[in-house]
Amino acid sequence: MNLTARDRALRGESRWGTAALGIVTWLVAALFFFPVFWMVLNSFKTELVANAKPVLFFEPTLERWQAVTEETRGLLSFSEAFSNSFFIVIVSTLIVLLLAIPAAYALSIYPIKGWRDVLFFFISTKFLPIVAAILPLWIIARDLGLLNTSQVLIILYTAMNLPLAIWMLRSFFGEVPRELIEAAQMDGTGLYGQIKDVMLPIVAPGIAATALLCFIFAWNEFFLAVQLNPVDSSTVPVWVSTNVTTRGNFMAKISAASTLAVLPVVIAGWLAQKRMIRGLSMGAIK
């Protein structure tokens, strides 16, 4: 938007002040983006170049990408880790939505007495540092025969994301005017129809945002994965860490692995963002 001098005067802004703030913003953004940029850049270098004095111009190669995706017998491979991760993350996110949508609907549309306590209880389950719970979790998982299985991570990631999802969805549901639900009731819909035909399409952007966060949190989770499921059916973060060896510093290879690991999240974010914007511009009620 182009502002005239008078627009700026009304807002109490000066041309130079605005420009300076803009520069600072770009600097901060560059500071945050730099490590990511450096990681992607490193993944296209050879180990020799990557571990030498940093340079900006070099001959790019896909050799490290190939090396990192190569399968080694007995070790967790790239394709295994990715398919495990996708399975665990998608299933746990679906379960979270399946449980959180009805819970959030009930809490925002038909709140019971003490609904605030219920919400607080949900979030209080996140107060305990996970490291304090890892031993009992490990013992329970062992007794149930769930160590080194996908199931244990699906269960834990569901539990981990559920409180957050309920909180987020409750506030999205709360923004839907009550009269819309009443109108749906008058139009002859039951509870299921109200949720499916009226609520869900309207809060779809909110659901997309919630699902995206659950996806990211579960995708990036490392601690539980490495403790409870470090071997056969483990996930991408564990696979990235297997590239850290005692035989030396393979910067380029780890960069390639890390770049691969963040790609799904970036793509998911990009897809969700499009959907969210479309949803948000859907329009007001009045």
């Binding site: 005017p177 009269e179 819309l180 009443e182 109108a183 749906a184 009226v198 399409p201 309207i202 859907m282 329009g283 007001a284 009620i285 009045k286």
Partner: peptide
């Protein structure tokens, strides 16, 4: 309804 409560989608 006063706000018409039309389904926006």
């Amino acid at each position: 309804f006063q706000s018409y409560a039309l389904y926006p989608h």
